[in-house]
Amino acid sequence: MPPSRLLKHKGRPRHAPDAQWRRGIGDVALGNSLSADIAPIANALILGLSIASIWLIAALGLAIIYGAIGVINMAHGEFIMLGAYTSYALQSFFGLPFLLCIPAAFIVVAFIGLLLERGLIRYLYKRPLDTLLATWGVSLVLTQLVRLTFGSDPKYIAVPEMFQSNVQLGFVNLSVLRIFVFALTIVLVAATAFLFYRTRFGMQVRAVMQNKEMAASFGINADRVYMLTFALGAGLAGVAGSLLGVLAIVLPTMGTAYVVQAFLVVVVGGGTILGSVVASGLTGEFQSVLAYVTNETFARFLLYLLIVVLLRFRPAGLFAPAKARR
């Protein structure tokens, strides 16, 4: 198995092979006595960036759907899972190269999101609590459907050869796959920000967010904006799924593991794209550094505690836009 492959505990949400992986680089770094002091911290910080990129990619679609439509999509984790299974199925049944599986997962999951929005969510825009319940129900259905189709045993997405090696950066040893995930996250976040802040479509979305009636009075079809935004958010979850599926293993229940992190990022960030970037960076680094000082599980505990305290003082997140909810 490639070094980047996560050995996942059954049923227990684990994100990335952080503990194992860090042990590996720790050995390398300790070999150099000069950098013995900084090396572990530098490792932890760089690892934190990698964790942040994974959490950010998992959260991006959720942030868009929540930020623009105000829908808390409890099925987001299952969209991620569907993206992973799409990549798995296309790769193992049709031999599609992994790099093509990523856009394919985007299209497939965006289409599923579109169907869900047209068939269900759009009837619930005025009833936020019902959306919560409905999307949670959808998440259960999707998990079960996939379990019935593919079985509950773990699936693997083969790592392309070009991603299997590691690179040495200073005293930090990084897997190429993680660098690829990091780079693709940056590209996707930049593309999403461009779409929302520099295009006519993005302006329509932001107008609908601020004042749906006024947007409609000036020719914007809010229904269509909601539909496309939901599909876009779902598609981004699909991309996240194919990346997370190749970093770890593919399971029908994998969504629940990632959705917690995704929600943390969105809640801490306040629902904007910039907020999500900063929130994922902070939480990722905290997790990584705390895990270096203590251990993986205790770090997670401390991180959650910090977030609870943060939300006590900033209930709307770090970058709370003063928005009028529909």
Binding site: R206, A207, Q210, N211, E213, M214, A215, A216, S217, F218, G219, I220, N221, A222, P321
Partner: peptide
């Protein structure tokens, strides 16, 4: 016709309280 289509027929609306989008 829904609102967004009526706008395209050539209706320009200046609502009470102006309702400009403050964040734009």
């Amino acid at each position: 016709a829904p609102t967004h289509q009526r706008a395209k027929y050539g209706l320009g609306y200046i609502p009470q309280g102006r309702q400009i989008l403050a964040k734009f």
